[in-house]
Design a protein around this nucleic acid. Sequence first.
DNA 1: TTATTATTTAGAATCATTCTCAACTGGTAA
DNA 2: TTACCAGTTGAGAATGATTCTAAATAATAA
Lengths: 155, 155
Amino acid sequence: METRIDRIKKQLHAASYKLTPQREATVRILLDHEEDHLSAEDVYLLVKDIAPEIGLATVYRTLELLTELKIVDKINFGDGVSRYDLRQEGAAHFHHHLVCLECGAVDEIQEDLLEDVETVVEKRWNFQIKDHRLTFHGICWRCNDLGADKPEKDA
Amino acid sequence: METRIDRIKKQLHAASYKLTPQREATVRILLDHEEDHLSAEDVYLLVKDIAPEIGLATVYRTLELLTELKIVDKINFGDGVSRYDLRQEGAAHFHHHLVCLECGAVDEIQEDLLEDVETVVEKRWNFQIKDHRLTFHGICWRCNDLGADKPEKDA
DNA sequence: TTATTATTTAGAATCATTCTCAACTGGTAA
DNA sequence: TTACCAGTTGAGAATGATTCTAAATAATAA
């Protein structure tokens, strides 16, 4: 995991920012909670455990910075908060989400799946796609009672 | 256009709500601005022209009600406001959006395009899809300087 | 008519996010 | 070493969107 932080450090330096202790602590929390979809407040509370002096504004600033550098993506599931999600290293596009209307769980789909759709959109709508957001709302495998199974691990 | 309001009225009644003058005024504004993606504040300002006594809270409540009844969809493009978009009558799924990073324009795609992707997701992730949100971020035909043309009218 | 319920209004309250500004940091040049 | 400087931080104030509250009003039922 150390190398991952180092690479992020390089990305910051490349944009002439420093990896301050506060920023490092924030990134560590994000790495430790890659599965989750934390709000700024969530991150703040978790970071306080390893860096108690940190202020909420700094967390917001750091998350904004990381978003700018495309290290994290800011998402919104319709409750009043923004959530922050680490991008897969080297991923060209943002991954997709499955939001369960029953239990509220948010699962991720790392596969692109949209290549064909994007080709159509670029051609027919003359739109040069830079990124996308795709979220499905429905019932997850956990809440689906028809003897549903956990899906195979995501690629 | 009258019939459209009548049908909405029926939908409200079916859920035992009334189409009060304030609600009707709000719906009219939405119908008159189907192309746009108005925020609650936007709607409020427009509604005031035809129903000056209306309060902002009522507009919020009405939009919430319409969202609940799936007459409109609430969307969020990452600026701090929720926007409200009339659903096509009879549309099973919400339509997609193209957000231009250059000029901020938001265009709509009414075609589904996701049938195949949804089939895969339902099968592989064991997820029963009820609805979706798909937004592309990029450069629109207006800002695309490579002699780009307006795309043919959406189906 | 009277009782009951749904709806509205205005303004207060809430909550997430951003801003302000004084204090602090680490590095650099003298 | 010392003085400086740009970048960064923390605390709390400010902002802005949204929701809540309480009293008034309108619609409905008995």
